[in-house]
């Protein structure tokens, strides 16, 4: 690694995050479950398979259009379990609170968690609270872990991705990233820009799982660009996506153009990328479009027979270029 002290970019979900995980955590904790490096680990238990995941949430601001830190803390963990084919059962929550946080804010966050958990039909069964001195944390950090049950016969993983598989995304990209950026920096960008934060377990269990996906990935930090690169490097095949097919809402697209941010790398909180054989993909697509979180689902690309593990984009003018793994945080351009 090129750094001695942890740079902020290590938390951005891009190449640096990946390196930190591999070189510090995976090298120490290495085991067959962890080494899959997917959204949740699936562990064989006597008589069943259990999916297990954890995630910490450090969002600034705590509240933004379309969601808040509590909603994300529940949805994020529910989605990590769901994309591994699990039915989420229970989640834990750990709060790290900065001294002086108004109780009203904590109550609002908790109420939002309650609502999200009810929608996702999961129970928050255990928790922990720590309060740290002023300035030792930024208002409120939340960690949630979750367990889910994977029914017999369900096996979705990046290793199962095959050439010819189509790739589906359940709707518009980048809205969470832009909504938070807009709120955090008071950019004042008008228009309908709201986080897509949502629990996807309903969509996944009703529309996707019954139709036989090869793999599903929760598309969050680092965006679709990161997820596709991870998938390509795990399965070994290259992936081609079509720029014209990528769904991005008009206000988000305009904001991205203005700020110089690539929607392929911007964060989402309610998006699943589905890989499936052509036949299954068509069934999945039509079923997803009937669900409220899949109305704008579309096929965005396919897995190629090429064994280079690259991600290619067919551009609007018919040219081809690479989609690299994101390097770090995306910063708005200067001019």
């Amino acid at each position: 690694m090129f750094f001695e002290n942890i740079p902020l970019a290590c938390g951005s979900g891009g190449r640096l995050t990946c390196e930190l995980i591999k070189e510090v955590f995976q090298s120490s904790f290495s085991n067959k479950f962890l080494n899959e490096l997917e959204d949740a680990a699936v562990i064989d238990m006597p008589g069943s398979k259990i999916a297990f995941t954890t995630d910490s949430y450090v969002v600034n601001p705590l509240f933004f259009p379309g969601g808040d830190i509590g909603k994300i803390a529940v949805c994020g963990t529910v989605n990590d379990l769901s994309v591994k084919g699990a039915v989420p059962v229970a989640i834990s929550c750990g709060f790290i609170i900065e001294e002086g946080l108004p109780l009203k804010i904590l109550k609002e966050v908790v109420s939002s968690m309650k609502k999200a958990a009810a929608e996702a039909n999961v129970k928050i069964v255990t928790g922990d609270t720590k309060v740290v001195e002023r300035l030792k944390a930024d208002k409120l950090f939340i960690n949630t872990s979750g367990i889910g049950v994977v029914k017999k016969g369900i096996d979705v993983s990046q290793k199962r991705i095959k050439p010819g598989d189509l790739i589906i995304i359940n709707g518009d990209l980048a809205s969470h990233g832009i909504a938070v950026l807009n709120a955090r920096n008071n950019l004042g960008i008008k228009g309908d820009i709201k986080s897509d934060c949502a629990p996807l377990n309903g969509l996944i269990s009703y529309s996707i799982i019954p139709n036989g996906p090869s793999c599903m990935r929760d598309v969050t930090r680092g965006g679709l660009g990161m997820v596709l690169n991870e998938a390509a490097s795990s399965c070994g095949y290259s992936i081609e996506i079509d720029e014209n097919a990528l769904p991005v809402s008009k206000p988000v697209k305009s904001a991205c153009d203005m700020l110089g941010i690539d929607p392929l790398y911007a964060a989402n909180e309610g998006k699943v990328a589905v890989f499936a054989s052509e036949k299954n993909a068509l069934k999945i697509l039509s079923s997803m479009r009937k669900h409220k979180y899949g109305k704008r689902a579309s096929i965005i690309g396919r897995v190629l027979p090429e064994k280079k593990a690259k991600v290619w984009l067919k551009t609007s003018i018919g040219a081809k270029r690479m989609v690299a793994m994101p390097e770090g945080e995306q910063l708005p351009r200067i001019c």
Binding site: D262, T315, I317
Partner: peptide, 13 residues
């Protein structure tokens, strides 16, 4: 212009 540089590269012209 840097924005043209990026646009040329991103569109694969």
């Amino acid at each position: 212009c840097g924005t043209h540089t990026m646009s040329i590269a991103a569109s694969g012209i």
